[in-house]
């Protein structure tokens, strides 16, 4: 079961984005993307980037929380 290393979203929120192969055509790594928090990662990266428990807690994202919006579109309404 894959979950998001940043927001822990479950597998149904994770997109299998792209697979990298070597010159012989063998699979080398896979890139995933989280539809909940928009985190992108490659499964060959060090744990400090892609393991929820190893990552610094400061960098966790809760997609339900409000985050600043740059040039909020609501301003035109």
């Amino acid at each position: 079961m894959i979950s998001c290393p940043r927001c822990q979203a479950a597998q149904d929120k994770i997109r299998n984005e792209h697979q990298g192969h070597d010159a012989q055509g063998d699979l080398v790594w896979t890139i995933y993307h989280c539809n909940a928090c928009e985190f992108t990662w490659r499964d060959s990266e060090p744990a400090t980037s892609i393991d929820y428990d190893t990552r610094e807690a400061f960098f966790r994202v809760d997609p339900e929380k409000p985050y600043p919006v740059i040039m909020p579109p609501a301003q035109y309404k």
Partner: peptide, 24 residues
């Protein structure tokens, strides 16, 4: 038009990460 998406963090030039925001 009108779409905003989670972006960041990104390690910026002062040597610190910018935060997560929703951007065009």
């Amino acid at each position: 038009n009108g779409v905003r998406t989670f972006e960041g963090p990104f390690g910026e030039f002062p040597g610190s990460y910018s935060g997560v925001r929703k951007i065009p």
